[in-house]
Design a binder for these strands. Structure first.
Lengths: 198, 198, 198, 198
DNA sequence: TATGAATGAGCATTCATTCAT
DNA sequence: GATGAATGAATGCTCATTCAT
């Protein structure tokens, strides 16, 4: 019974991602999400508090998974170099392979409604922490000179985010993964990375 | 007579910036902009096509000025180092000194409505070009090794943008200008800047 | 369930007739129709496309019934004399007994909006055909000399219509049925009716 | 000076007829009338109380002339036959030669707004009186049997009016004057006209 | 649980009219 | 008188949410 409930929850979530990506949050009607999910309008409200809540949960669920998987991969890296590469590679690959989620993340979620922002920040802060930890580790191990971790994190996340938005909004389709190497090189330079075994 | 018209146009623009910053684009009623500008609701429509048009023009006018002034300052710089500093300093200073514009720019304008996006991109592309020219000049003068200018631009703009958004959304007020130096250091490292006369 | 739906449809239709008759189409607010029908504003739009659509349907439904019933009665008449009497009597009786419908028919529906006109004409043309058939039958049976059926129909319908409008707009209430006999006599003269069995 | 004023008054009147005929009363903006008349919006209000007043005056002025000219022609007729012919001929000819006025008269003026109706009725009543006088004269001279003059007038005016509306709304252009003779024949039959000297 | 018909709050925009020049 | 920029009242319709079944 609980599995059934979970299944319907996920179906609505997936339907919402498609609907938001296609029509935009404001122009997408709840009715459309319901139709795509194969449930009645009212059913949505048995699983979510409101349309906004659907948007928030989309982010929490999908980005939560994304962050968890990145966290796991990072834990297996030995060097800062490897960790930076993991961040850039995972970020670009995930977005390129989940375009609808990328659209929702890069465009729809940038609504300024305080309620939405608040919940999103709570989730994205985990990502920020992950990045800052990598920098901190680098500093502690001597691979990276002492720098302001917040500013460095803003640079890394901001760069990845901007590159993704650029890619999402590009008219002519192009690949995002091809930017992994050049972006990584910039990050290494910015952090003045001292590669141990080279 | 034309000066009067221009004055009223600017008054509505300023009122809109305040109103959008306070309530958000979607929740802000045209009536509120009119009240703040000291004109009747209908008067707005003598100067703007629609509420959306107001948002678009806010960006075009204010960012247009911002870009023009940055362009002018850049033309007086002799080195890539100076140019990078001008970019970071001008960006952070302008945003810190025009918080309402920053809110509108960083939050309200990230709506995905295609019409709005389109007009905004046309304006922001000028900023992108400015940044890419600086990188290109650096490469040509030998101050910067040969790198992908688009990726470098994404890093620079993305970092500045993320830092600004972070600052706009920070609960406890803090200064943005204090980030000029550390951010600049990161950029110089990323671009592996070869400072000539030092 | 379908009966319930049909019932609500009719209730809105009746409410609209009252509302239009009282305030006129343009001055009548959708909200008033909803109140009279005992439903919410939005409910109107579950049954009708727009306020204009309500007006059009009022005519189609009510005049459709009127024309159908007249058609049935005409089919039972043996002579042109009887048919003419049926037309005049049914027209005047129906209007006198349904004053609100008469008001809507004679006044509100004479809007020149092309969309409205078009739909109304499609319905009223059935009435025109009915009248022209009666004339044609009279000509074929020799009761009426060969005349232009369109002009004769314009005379008959125009006379009935004008008499009804006159009655609707009369300040002092008077009866419309009392005009049945004198109007009939005029029609018989106009058509130079040759009454067979007299 | 007064001639200048009168000229501008007429220019606005003519502009209004064109504008109403083209766009319909409700969809026609005062601004359009002003443009067509070559005056400023505000100027209209120096000559007319309101947009509705313009519509009313259009009818009063133009139909006033029409009625006056018909009255004059009728006074020169010797027989009821001649008078009936004058009515039908003048009505159809005038409408065919002034299509824009016909459109305004047959369609735009059928608005149910009480204020408009009232003023129009006061004007059209003169036309009704003219027709009823002709019938009365016929009765008194023995050319027409004793009948209800109101009903007879409703038949005559209603027939002419319906024929005109039919013509105005006809998709394929056709002539209205060709209906003079057949319509006249119907009227003579309806009134059982006894033609003296034939 | 699930449904989907019904609800009703909410708002951008138009345009007849005014009035300072 | 003439202008036309400014006014601001007025409202049809949408759509997130509810709730009787």
């Amino acid at each position: 019974m609980d599995a059934q409930r979970e299944g319907k929850f996920q179906r609505i979530l997936d339907a919402a991602i498609e609907a938001f990506a296609e029509s935009g949050f404001h122009h997408c009607q709840v009715n459309k999400i319901a139709r795509l999910a194969g449930v009645a309008d009212g059913t949505i409200y048995l699983y979510f508090k409101s349309k906004e809540d659907v948007l928030i949960r989309v982010f929490q669920e999908r980005m939560g998974d994304f962050i968890a998987s990145m966290s796991k991969e990072l834990s297996q890296c030995k060097t800062t170099e490897a960790r930076l590469k993991t961040i850039v590679k995972t970020h670009f690959s995930y977005m390129e392979e989940n375009r609808s989620i990328a659209i929702v993340t890069q465009l729809e979620l940038r609504q300024s409604d305080p309620r939405i922002r608040l919940h999103i920040n709570n989730t994205v802060v985990d990502y920020f922490n992950l990045i800052e930890e990598v920098i901190q580790q680098g500093i502690e191990s001597g691979e990276v000179p002492k720098i302001d971790t917040r500013v460095a994190r803003q640079m890394i996340f901001g760069s990845l985010d901007e590159a993704t938005t650029d890619w999402v909004m590009a008219r002519s389709p192009r690949t995002l993964k091809s930017e992994i190497e050049p972006m990584l090189a910039l990050f290494e330079g910015a952090l003045r990375l001292n590669k141990p075994n080279t």
